[in-house]
Design a protein around this nucleic acid. Structure first.
Lengths: 161, 161
DNA sequence: GTGAATTGATTACAATTGTAAACGAAGGGG
DNA sequence: CCCCTTCGTTTACAATTGTAATCAATTCAC
């Protein structure tokens, strides 16, 4: 029974959390100020999101005088990773390489970044597989089509023609 | 005025779309069958999602007899890329390299993948930057803290101590 | 100390999402 | 020809999300 907090947050909540992650400790006033440059939110709107995040146990609230100092209760990296995992769950394992290649070619990188990435790739060679196995259920990706046995299966019937 | 369709779909809609993308042409019956292995959905639930996707113009519906053959109206790759872009929008450009490094080290890759990725990296060296510029608004990442000028700014006041 | 400003909490309300039953038209079987 | 199945459509309804006003308790300014 791991008391794993749900790491999924909404787009608006990201905006709040990024401020809190960046500043470590902030008042609602500061969050509101920072986000005014980016989002067309009324202060009340920002406050709603802050409240919801506190409810969801994503924000710690320490009392300083009569107001709160908010600080993150979840790690930014964890949330980012979890969100990315979820994205990658939407594609076949066999496509992961290509997808990352796309991300790379789209990214702005420093030489340092590139070197690091080369290092990772070098490491990866050690446990590279001959061919990445498809992890999809039959019918949900092209690797395995679902080979239905029923006469009603359109795919099957097309093949018979 | 680009008639850009909104490429954002929900988790449940992904499940449907993946079936349609994989099969190119499917009936609702087949979608329902495929997803029964994965999701604990009643057929009615699947039908709802199909209907919504058709409304959203993500699915094409061709009539064959009295029933529909569904096919994708949006490209899978585009949807995946758009979803990933959205994710990467949540992090500072300076962290992109590291984040991709994490994805790489977490992925199962073939030698072929790795070679391709090495090629991309090689290309990247040509336009590698000295240092990736932060693209965040001040206050939303640690690169630029928001340097508020107001006396009420907590961060500022802490520094004065 | 009394009124104005702050600030967290409460309430509001529409849109989206997840989940599904019910309905209605159209075919298929007998 | 009539009933049963099939399948798209309509309706339902709770939970979540986006957006915000209002309230109530403080505190600050005068």
């Amino acid at each position: 029974m791991s008391t794993e907090i749900d790491l999924k947050i909404t787009d608006s909540e990201w905006e709040i959390m990024r401020v809190v992650w960046a500043q470590k400790e902030v008042t609602s006033k500061e969050i509101i100020e920072v986000l005014q440059q980016k989002k067309d939110w009324k202060p009340a709107t920002t406050k709603t999101f802050i409240g919801r995040l506190a409810n969801k146990d994503m924000l710690d609230t320490r009392t300083e005088g009569r107001r709160y100092i908010y600080s993150p209760k979840v790690n930014e990296e964890k949330v980012v990773k979890s969100a990315l995992h979820e994205q990658f769950n939407h594609i076949c394992n066999r496509d992961v390489g290509n997808t990352i290649a796309y991300l790379l070619s789209n990214a702005t990188l420093s030489l340092k970044d590139i070197e690091k990435l080369e290092g990772v790739l070098e490491e990866k060679k050690k446990d590279a597989v001959e061919e990445v196995a498809c992890n999809c259920i039959p019918g949900q990706c092209e690797c395995k089509s679902h080979h239905c046995s029923k006469d009603t299966c359109r795919e099957r019937n097309l093949k018979k023609e």
